[in-house]
């Protein structure tokens, strides 16, 4: 058994702000190489923390979310993957699988953002498989930590986006 975090941040709380380097193989301090949550206000954001780029479960989870990018867009939502992998690792993973999904690097200090979201597994040094749906006002509307080996799919994400749309 691996140690598991106490559970995700609660629904209706404010999503902690963060900024992380994008996974497209660019290094440097230029702001364009970073993704900043606060810049996304006005849009729904799905944060998918996942353990590692090349593991089979992660691969199918990220591929599924990548496939759903146009569907999420219909709900004014964008999906972001976050792992402790570095930018060149993300870039290779994306290219290998023909993915366009934005993947962020919680690489240095390692797991800092995952810890903010109660989604870091200290024992393994990896992100938990955690999902957050954050609304256009920056409020968490859905949060879930899946067992590490279980791909949580997208059913609950879509249900949450539908709820937000109909609210």
């Amino acid at each position: 058994m691996t140690s598991q975090s106490a559970g995700p941040l609660p629904v209706n709380s404010t999503a902690p702000d963060f900024s992380l380097p994008k996974g497209d193989g660019q290094l440097g301090a230029d702001p364009s190489t970073f993704w900043h949550l606060a810049d996304e206000r006005g849009k729904n954001v799905i944060l998918a923390f996942y353990p590692a780029d090349w593991s089979p479960v992660c691969g199918s989870q990220i591929a599924l979310y990548n496939e759903l990018i146009p569907t999420f867009a219909e709900y004014n939502a964008e999906v972001i993957g976050i792992s402790v992998d570095g930018t060149f690792c993300h870039k290779a993973f994306k290219e290998h699988n023909n993915l366009s999904i934005e993947l962020l690097c919680d690489f240095e200090p390692k797991g800092k953002t995952a810890k903010l979201y109660s989604a870091y597994n200290e024992q393994l040094g990896l992100c938990e498989r955690a999902i957050y749906v954050i609304d256009a006002q920056g409020i968490i509307r859905y949060s879930y930590i899946s067992p590490m080996g279980v791909n949580p799919g997208a059913k609950e994400i879509l249900e949450t986006l539908q709820e937000i749309q109909h609210a």
Binding site: V57, S60, Q61, A63, L64, E67, L68, T71, N151, P152, G153, A154, K155, L158
Partner: peptide, 13 residues
């Protein structure tokens, strides 16, 4: 069919 699958919890193939 794809979306019916997503809504049934299909997470991969």
């Amino acid at each position: 069919e794809f979306m019916g699958g997503v809504n049934s919890g299909v997470n991969g193939t």
